[in-house]
Simulated scan of single mutants.
Amino acid sequence: MTGTVPDAEQFLTLVARLQAEEPRLSAIQAGLLAAASLGIAHDSRTFARHLGLAHALVLRELNALAERGDRLSIETRDARTMRTHYILPGKT
């Protein structure tokens, strides 16, 4: 986690809003976007750990979202651990 403890209500509200705006987003995909936006997580392992999800499941959803190319971009992948760092468009 980066910095402060995230506000769970704020995170869940943003996930719900993202899914309402774009119904084809899965809950995990919306969560990945919300986590990046709120500074909670910018990599797959951190996101999986914070939410208690299997890393393989997070990777599948992250890759599906990245393939669309409009919501987030893959920055780097660690070949050994499969940790995948991602960013939102316009963020550095």
Rank of each mutant, 00 (worst) to 15 (best):
M1F: 05
M1E: 09
T2C: 06
G3W: 15
T4H: 13
T4C: 09
T4K: 10
V5W: 02
P6E: 02
P6Y: 14
P6F: 12
P6G: 04
A8R: 11
A8P: 05
A8Y: 02
E9S: 06
Q10I: 09
Q10P: 02
T13S: 05
V15Y: 00
L18N: 00
L18I: 02
Q19P: 05
A20W: 10
A20D: 13
E21H: 08
E22G: 01
E22Y: 10
P23I: 06
R24D: 10
L25C: 07
L25D: 03
S26M: 09
A27N: 04
I28S: 01
I28N: 01
Q29Y: 02
Q29W: 01
A30G: 00
G31F: 00
G31N: 03
G31C: 04
L32S: 01
L32E: 00
L33W: 05
L33K: 05
L33M: 11
A34L: 01
A34Y: 02
A35M: 09
A35F: 14
A36S: 11
S37P: 00
S37N: 14
L38F: 11
L38H: 10
G39P: 05
G39C: 05
G39E: 10
I40E: 05
A41P: 00
H42E: 12
D43F: 03
S44T: 09
S44V: 12
R45T: 08
T46A: 15
T46S: 14
T46D: 13
F47K: 02
A48L: 06
R49V: 13
H50A: 11
G52Y: 02
G52I: 02
G52H: 04
G52N: 10
L53Q: 08
A54W: 05
H55V: 04
A56K: 11
A56T: 14
L57H: 10
V58C: 07
R60K: 06
E61S: 01
E61N: 12
L62G: 01
L62S: 07
N63L: 15
N63Q: 12
A64V: 01
A64W: 03
A64F: 05
A64M: 04
A64L: 14
L65S: 12
E67G: 12
G69E: 11
G69M: 08
D70T: 13
D70E: 14
D70C: 11
R71W: 14
R71I: 03
E75F: 08
E75K: 13
E75N: 09
R77W: 01
R77D: 06
A79H: 14
A79F: 02
R80C: 03
M82C: 08
M82Y: 06
M82K: 10
R83Y: 06
